[in-house]
Design a protein around this nucleic acid. Structure first.
Lengths: 336, 336
DNA sequence: TTGTATGCGTTATCAA
DNA sequence: TTGATAACGCATACAA
């Protein structure tokens, strides 16, 4: 391994001069700098981030804690989010340590990643509704940003949340159905242990109330964001005597499952039943019929979150900059 | 920051004893160990991986270099692959440093990640056909494993490649079409600058030859793995006087684009034109009609690759264990 | 069974 | 403008 010492010997200077050149300090004579750069090149020297990190107590790396249970991660929504995160990290020279969480098994110890000095901060995606570990992070002053987890760490002002406007988006979806004349509107809910699922259910109920439409329990069926759960939920809805004429599914995959169930018994979408999803994954425009859905700005959310986190890390500040990103109703052909 | 020294003071021992406890050395008296563990707990001590890594020259982290151009990364194939990688890393206690490559911009310097001691080895996904950087890694004895890049680093026995059997899988697909009576079979090729695309094209040509069916240039249209490229390619095929009766697309997304183009001019799949894809992404079973395709074991590939890499790192050996993973033809309803 | 000295590669501080 | 020394947290080698 080539160290600054080796470079220094080759260039006939002290290792401190090498360090200065590496770090672009301006108090190095141009001739000396050239000698050093030449030696660096000849020896193929690369600075050792461990040595550096140990000294300055920084790693220029963020950890990303992402749920890996397939029904969440496999959604293209997450790849877009990741792309956004990557974009900002690349711009600011930060690395990304990838920590998939499997909710099932014993969880990851959030603070460990920081305390071990693996990362300078954490990006936490879709944590549980009440995540006590976030409180630990706050107490220990560990920088972190939460995506898709509004409120998971309580209302502490020091927590930065980046969320899509789930309530607004879901309200728009239900409102649209109401304005098209639907009165019997059902909801296939998402995984209710993350805020996305909970908020969309809340908005469904609330919008109905706003328009004086009674909320019927039999019209609310629990799903978990997977296509199969949407399929099963729809099967149940189809058994009802008073069948709904429209369904708002908490994500696109479940909407797709629902469409499958409807077609299977010979009914058609949207003629007999209208369907609205949430996410606007690429697949949404390929279903038959193409899906009316709520788009959330996944890339921007990732980018914003990384930006916030890295600014927090760099500035040492911990001021709140939570953001609710706008959603948009994309009307295609699954609604009537 | 709490260090071994702090723990040592609290427990009334030397920091070396603390180190021994951390590393589960057996030459520590049980009573002493308990004292130390108690102090560790009370102080909330976590070992600093930078200090440790600097000393033992290991990081227990692998770097994953993955193409982020959306047409490759957004495929669910890659999420599955990542899940496999994660699985083995979790089992062996390794971290994953995530390095998306954007082929467009100036590339990542592969060796840098290792030389800077960020990682102990590299997992390189879908490199270019001839990747000179891989030769550097070989020369510098940096552990790495290539996924979806058979041959990118030359035929050096020291390179470990984990690939799906692209040639076998594509051959099965084309053979199936031939056995169903098709003679006019076209191919929508993938991105030909990665081995997956190239091999599938090769297998297409080769299988036709094997069955004495002439290879017609006009039946081969270049795509780049995106849905839109499949759509456009199919448009061109549909303009031919002697239209093909079957199309083998180099991946599912392009197959889906092709189906869209076919439907648009009022023809039907599979009655008038049969389509076969490659990958078997989840979406494949939702298209209308559900797609006949070639399944590759993405999860296992990721798992195997990580296993190979980490074993190389741990054993210091660099023996070749390249693997070609089996593929399977999944017959659904897009073929006739 | 436990402790002391040393060095990993880097940067900060202070001196020259 | 340059260099010497110390320190970051840890584990190895050796001594007690």
């Amino acid at each position: 391994m080539v160290s600054q010492m080796d470079v220094a010997k080759r260039a006939g200077v002290s290792f401190m001069t090498v360090s200065r050149v590496i770090n672009n300090k301006n108090n190095v004579k141009e001739a000396t700098r050239k000698k050093v750069l030449k030696a660096i090149k000849e020896l193929g020297y690369y600075p050792n981030v461990l040595g550096r990190g140990l000294n300055i107590n920084k790693t220029e790396t963020i950890g990303i804690l992402i749920p890996l249970c397939s029904h969440l991660f496999s959604t293209q929504y997450y790849t877009e989010l990741l792309r956004g995160v990557e974009q900002y990290c690349a711009e600011s020279g930060f690395g990304i340590l990838f920590y998939p969480r499997r909710e099932e098994s014993g969880d990851i110890d959030y603070q460990r990643l920081f305390q071990e000095r693996r990362v300078d901060g954490l990006l936490i995606i879709a944590p549980p509704l009440k995540d006590l570990q976030l409180l630990t992070l706050i107490k220990k002053k560990i920088p972190f940003v939460v995506i898709d987890g509004r409120g998971s760490g309580g209302k502490n002002k020091r927590v930065v949340y980046i969320d899509a406007d789930n309530i607004g988006g879901a309200s728009k979806a239900v409102e649209y159905l109401i304005k098209r004349g639907h009165k019997k509107i059902a909801h296939i809910s998402g995984w209710l242990y993350v805020v996305n699922g909970k908020d969309r259910l809340y908005a469904y109920k609330n919008t109905l109330k706003k328009y004086k439409i009674p909320v019927k329990n039999e019209y609310i069926v629990k799903g978990d964001f997977t296509e199969i759960s949407g399929y099963n939920a729809m099967k149940n809805l189809l058994k009802l005597k008073d069948r709904p004429t429209a369904v708002f599914a908490a994500n696109d995959l479940m909407a797709i499952g629902a469409i499958k169930a409807i077609k299977e018994i010979g009914l058609s979408v949207p003629e007999e039943i209208s369907i609205v999803g949430f996410d606007d994954i690429p697949l949404a425009s390929y279903t038959i019929p193409p899906l009316t859905t709520v788009r959330q700005p996944a890339f921007q959310m990732g980018y914003e979150a990384a930006k916030n986190l890295i600014e927090m890390i760099k500035s040492q500040r911990t001021e709140t900059k939570s953001k609710i990103m706008k959603t948009a109703l994309i009307v295609r052909n699954s609604t009537n």
